[in-house]
């Protein structure tokens, strides 16, 4: 459970996070989506007590992060997979965490195995790790203390598609057991594949939030038929807005069921009928990205 209330973070004249409020619920995977420089990382660092907020507050498990006793046993953090001492081995990084949190050394072996690092890889220095391996080490570190809450900044970065699927399954299983997960990404399809709830942030402000279904619902319907011309006319008659897409087929601003009914009434054979891809979300996201691409000030 993470609660963010009217959180603002300013760096001089630049507002990195602008009056942001949201809640991350247990049992769900919440995606924090936004282009680079939107304020995701800054907001996450405030949640973890690493960056002081200008105003507003963030609490984790009902407390400010700094008030959590032995926070590693309550909250798993992965804020930057590259932020590890290059001269330490992966195993050493985990061992240090295990000592500090007071979990046994066997937990280190367990986590190494969980993220699929071999014995040899775990004993290699982080300097020689690929980004994907660092992410895996970071995920292992975040899970080390058996936390109730996970805060992961761009954890899928550097993972291949199989890795992203692995992470989705892992986080899904973790959330099913009651865990709270907040993960950020600048890639829509990554978030779409992993998250139940999505918070979209741009220029420091939240521009949309809701369940994935809610956010994708506005996307309308995509359909193809044996006679798109007739279907267009029939839809217009039912005062449903439809557009031809450049690749053929129709983009309809209605639920699939409404389109199906119209087709049935006019005896038009549909060859395809489905909720459109996250077009609405994608367009909103592209608008955000297109607008003055700002480098993340606090990267």
């Amino acid at each position: 459970m993470i609660t963010v209330e009217r959180l603002t973070k300013r760096y001089g004249p630049f507002t990195a996070v602008d009056d942001v409020s949201f809640e991350v619920k247990p049992g769900l995977v919440t995606g924090f989506l936004g282009p680079n420089g939107a304020g995701k990382t800054t907001a996450m660092r405030v949640m973890a007590g690493l960056t002081p907020a200008t105003s507003g507050r963030a609490t984790v498990l009902g407390k400010p992060y700094a008030a959590l006793p032995n926070p590693g046993r309550h909250v798993g953090l992965l804020l930057d997979a590259s932020a590890q001492h290059a001269g330490r081995t992966g195993r050493e990084v985990l061992t240090l965490g295990a000592i500090l949190m007071g979990v046994g050394k066997h937990r280190v072996d367990e986590m190494v195995e969980l993220v699929g690092l071999t014995e040899k890889e775990a004993n290699r220095r982080v300097r020689n790790y690929s980004l994907g391996m660092r992410q895996r080490l970071g995920i292992a570190h975040a899970l080390l203390g058996d936390p109730e809450v996970l805060i992961l900044d761009e954890p899928a970065n550097g993972l291949d598609p199989a890795g992203i699927r692995w992470m989705r399954d892992l986080l899904r299983g973790y959330a099913n057991e009651g865990g709270t997960v907040l993960l950020s990404s600048h890639l829509l399809n990554e978030i779409e594949r992993v998250a139940d709830e999505i918070i979209v942030i741009g220029h420091g402000k939240i521009v949309a939030q809701g369940t994935k279904d809610e956010l994708l619902a506005g996307a309308g319907t995509y359909t193809r038929s044996t006679d798109d011309e007739a279907l267009m006319a029939a839809l217009a008659e039912a005062s449903i807005v439809a557009q031809r897409t450049p690749t053929g087929g129709l983009q309809v601003e209605a639920e699939p069921i409404a389109v199906g009914r119209v087709a049935l009434a006019h005896q038009i054979v549909l060859t395809e009928l489905r909720g459109a891809d996250s077009r609405g979300l994608e367009e909103m996201f592209l608008d955000l990205t297109a607008g003055a691409a700002r480098e993340e000030v606090a990267a």
């Binding site: 006793p69 309550h74 367990e110 699929g116 692995w166 099913n176």
Partner: peptide, 22 residues
């Protein structure tokens, strides 16, 4: 580098209550 496990395992719980002391 080694491939990720084909099936993601959920990490096991650590026995006992979570610590309330620092």
């Amino acid at each position: 580098e080694s491939a990720l496990p084909t099936h993601a395992k959920v990490p096991s719980r650590i026995a006992g209550p979570r610590p309330t002391t620092g």
